[in-house]
Design a protein around this nucleic acid. Sequence first.
DNA 1: ATGGATTTTGCAAATTATTCGCAAGTCCTG
DNA 2: CAGGACTTGCGAATAATTTGCAAAATCCAT
Lengths: 129, 129
Amino acid sequence: MLERTLYSTSARRKIAELLKAERRYLTAAEIHRLLRAENARLALSTVYRTLETLAATGVASSRADESGESSYVYCHDGHHHHAICRSCGHVDDVSCTTMDQFRATLLEEQSFALDDHAIEFFGRCAACR
Amino acid sequence: MLERTLYSTSARRKIAELLKAERRYLTAAEIHRLLRAENARLALSTVYRTLETLAATGVASSRADESGESSYVYCHDGHHHHAICRSCGHVDDVSCTTMDQFRATLLEEQSFALDDHAIEFFGRCAACR
DNA sequence: ATGGATTTTGCAAATTATTCGCAAGTCCTG
DNA sequence: CAGGACTTGCGAATAATTTGCAAAATCCAT
């Protein structure tokens, strides 16, 4: 494991702040555009590199959006899931409990009305066990 | 809704057969390479177009792999999930019941040892309801 | 504070996946 | 088997992401 010091730079701070404030999945291009709009001067490649770092350190998590473009959201570290609003894109963290309780709990605790979900299972298939 | 006739062509048949036989997520490039290896002559762009068609008709379903490249697997039509083997990539369809039952049922009925999953929830957040 | 080691950034060029236009080829129906 | 409809191949065009490298910023021990 290679250890290296992470510098606190203006680009990193701004990108992290933006993600934290928006709380929805943003692509590198969107982040770049948003920050430029508020007069930050930074290269798109820096955004890409920073996002990679944030994801690696558990500050952000990524997913591919509909078109396959990868997007990032600020979130807790550790195992959990995301409730994504179809209307505004807002993302809530969801701890991992039983599936059926989810709908009720989600509505009760986070006022999120669940209407669809996508799951991927990982493990060992019959042939590989 | 535009209706149009789908022709049964050699490319389509071969791609569908391959997906059906492999039963794991394959990228357009992989499919192209595999088919070429068995002497099929077809263009990569044809593979892309065919996959798009297969996905649109519910014969295959797609997901972005680790690197963001999109891959396809032969599967049932209708709402269900996929159990992906971490070892060989084999994909089993999983009907959508309660989460906790999943592990047990999955193991019992499909001999798939679930050890991780990724879920995405979609709906309306508190602010948008 | 200052200097030097280390990390980060900007820029532009290079990659890579995916899409597109269009002429030629294939398939289907009557 | 003729004509129209749908597909394919090919190469060029896009679009996202990565990379090399020199310059700039950050950090840390003096």
